[in-house]
Design a binder for these strands. Structure first.
Length: 412
RNA sequence: GCGUCUGUCGUCAAGUGGUUAAGACCUCGGAUUGUGGUUCCGAUAUGCAUGGGUUCGAAUCCCAUCAGACGCCCCA
């Protein structure tokens, strides 16, 4: 036997039995997002590598070690690891800054990251996300979070927790980083290897380290004092507290998490995540925040923006399984040409109907009908002669004989 | 990149050194050539992830490789 070719590590087939759940995710996205005025945008899966290096940030793990990058005709090309950079690229390239603000866009589609797969993490996965451009006020942050919660509710997901934080602006954040590094300097040699790396790369990240020895260090009063201090500047603080009061007014429950830091470089001020307790250790279904300098950094007009992305596989695993939908009818007939004819008559009218293409025995056909359909439409020699169809309700076993043109009125 | 655990039919599995590798579901066929879902009968792994080794004898023990699950890092 020739060697089996299997799906690549970290990739998965989405099988027919899961299709209905995916349709639900997609249908609700379209419905809910359009209620808030969002339009769908579809950007290419392939983009110039440089877009992500400049957009996502070349100190991030995503760009440094997780991208699928290859050379083609002297160009470096990358499979998108996320879609904010692509949407921003399109926003700039298509002159959307000239449109009346806000510009509200949503997307869905596959993303690619070369990581070790585990629960809730694949190398090819799907995200659905929104981006809003042109509004610097905290109303935009609030609406975008409200939209996320609304969408999750539409899927029946209620027991999720919204976590928020403010990273401040580049100015006040630098100040905060400096203070963290100062207070941790004497402890540097006692930090774990990961934390020592984070010390230079992203000091904000090392505060929620899970290693016990690090936890002990961070628990020290003088260090806690720095962590808990309100470092953000007045303007940022106002933005943050306005956001919080909007959320309260809108009945969006949230918890503040000072340790919430997103791993992408472009965020400023608001960051948030939505988490579930019913997932593994990868428990965030939604992550997002404000990125006021990204559009400018990628060569566009200075345009404030907020957005988020959700992992569709993670959402999907929280959704209850659904029974596969049955056919409306299955035609039981020994004459394929007559069965074809009846099937097409009904399909034109919107009925879901199949018949046995292999022309098996009557009892086999009926058996199949009972498995896959609500009604069996029996079209035998007698029925064909008299232009009738016998309709059998496969749940109640009731059977009636009706005129062929009347079938549609009897299988509702 | 690191760590832990796991690989027996399409699926779920029993078997943990001794003749032909249980069972269940699914699928297919028959009982049943115009009446299904219940029932009964039958079919379906010369092979236990792959390759070596130990042994009189290996699905079972050892080694390597591969694959998967979970966790770290990071993220959706």
């Amino acid at each position: 036997m020739t060697k089996m070719i299997k799906v690549l590590k970290g990739t998965k087939d989405i099988l027919p039995q899961e299709a209905e759940k995916w349709h639900r995710l997609e249908k609700n996205a379209l419905e809910i997002f359009s209620k808030y005025g969002y339009k769908e945008i579809r950007t290419p899966i392939l983009e110039a590598t440089e877009l992500f290096a400049r957009g996502v940030g070349d100190t991030t793990d995503i760009v440094n070690k997780e991208m699928y990058t290859f050379e083609k005709s002297d160009r470096s090309i990358t499979l998108r690891p996320e879609n904010t950079a692509g949407v921003v690229r399109s926003f700039i390239e298509n002159g959307m800054a000239r449109l009346s603000a806000p510009v509200k866009l949503w997307y869905k589609g596959p993303m690619f990251r070369y990581e070790r797969p585990q629960a809730g993490r694949q190398r090819q996965f799907h995200q659905v996300g929104v981006e809003m451009f042109g509004i610097k006020e905290p109303t935009a942050d609030a609406e975008v979070i409200l939209l996320a919660v609304d969408y999750l509710k539409s899927l029946g997901l209620n027991d999720l927790e919204v976590e928020i934080n403010s990273l401040g602006c580049p100015n006040c954040r630098e100040e905060y980083k400096k203070r963290i590094k100062e207070v941790l300097k004497p402890e540097f040699n006692h930090l774990c290897e990961d934390c020592q790396n984070r010390y230079e790369k992203n000091p904000l990240r090392l505060l929620d380290c899970k290693v016990d020895s690090c936890k002990e260090i961070f628990a020290k009063p003088e260090i806690q004092k720095v962590i808990q201090s309100d470092f953000i500047c007045e303007e940022c603080a106002k933005h943050y507290s306005d956001l919080k009061s909007y959320l309260t007014k809108l009945n969006v429950p949230y918890v503040e998490n000072k340790l919430l830091v997103r791993g992408l470089d472009y965020y400023n001020r608001t960051v948030f995540e939505i988490k579930s307790n019913n997932l593994g250790s990868q428990n965030a279904v939604c992550g997002g925040g404000r990125y006021d300098s990204l559009v400018k950094n990628l060569g566009g007009e200075d345009t404030p923006a907020v957005g988020w992305a959700m992992g569709m596989e993670r959402l999907n695993s929280l959704l209850p399984d659904v029974e596969p939908e049955k056919l409306d009818a299955y035609i039981v007939c020994n004459s394929p040409s007559d069965a074809f004819e009846l099937a097409q008559e009904l399909r034109v009218k919107g009925i879901k109907v199949e018949f046995d293409l292999a022309n098996k025995k009557f009892t086999k056909q009926l058996e199949k009908a009972s498995k896959v359909a609500k009604y069996a439409l029996i079209l035998g020699e007698d029925e064909i002669k008299s232009n009738k169809v016998s309709i059998k309700n496969l749940e109640t076993s009731e059977q009636v004989s009706v005129d062929r043109n009347d079938v549609i009125n009897n299988i509702g």
